[in-house]
């Protein structure tokens, strides 16, 4: 990915590289910074300046999208420390078992079309997610817990997928 060639995303937003980020404040800063590189401001600039502005705007957008998502932010923090492959196989037994159970539950919920039960299920997922987030916030600060931090970030990715599946189901049930 050549992440090292980029400006540090946290620095771009004048933030410390930590997992805890105020996303509302992040969005405000993003809008302010985006104004500075908006194409309209470069209407009379040279072609080189215009191109540079477009590049900066793209980078700023990448940075915002990365830091906005807790999962992407976690992976970004980990990749700043050391390389981490995009695709890998994990054998996190206990969590995968839980993952299987959730998928089965989701299948049942789809058949039942029970919106209240789905809401309870989402609550359970959110709880699991916040536990992972809290644990990650601690692990990422401790170099000796690198492996655990990686495992937690991978779990976040699976939970993102679960939430995606839930949204798909909600949309189907709404129809």
């Amino acid at each position: 990915m050549g992440q090292s060639q980029h400006t540090d995303y946290f620095a771009l937003f004048a933030l410390q590289p930590t997992f805890a980020v105020d996303t509302a404040a992040l969005a405000v800063t993003y809008r302010q910074l985006a104004k500075d590189v908006h194409p309209d401001r470069f209407a009379n600039a040279t072609a080189a300046e215009q191109r540079q502005a477009v590049e900066r705007a793209a980078e700023l957008n990448d940075a915002f999208q990365t830091l906005k998502s807790p999962t992407q932010r976690a992976l970004y923090l980990l990749r700043q420390q050391a390389e981490m492959p995009e695709e890998t196989t994990i054998q996190d037994g206990e969590f995968l078992l839980q993952q299987m159970e959730w998928r089965e539950q989701l299948e049942d919920l789809q058949e039942q079309a029970d919106l209240q039960a789905l809401e309870r299920f989402v609550g359970e997922l959110k709880q699991a997610r916040s536990k992972i987030d809290n644990a990650f916030a601690l692990c990422i600060e401790d170099p000796e817990q690198r492996l655990q931090a990686e495992r937690l970030a991978r779990r976040m990715q699976f939970l993102d997928k679960m939430f995606y599946e839930v949204r798909q189901l909600e949309e189907r049930l709404d129809d």
Binding site: E87, T88, I90, L97, R154, Q157, F158, K161, Y164
Partner: peptide, 13 residues
Amino acid sequence: GMVGAPACGDVMR
């Protein structure tokens, strides 16, 4: 065997 692929969220038993 229980394995998973985080990038796409696939789980395989």
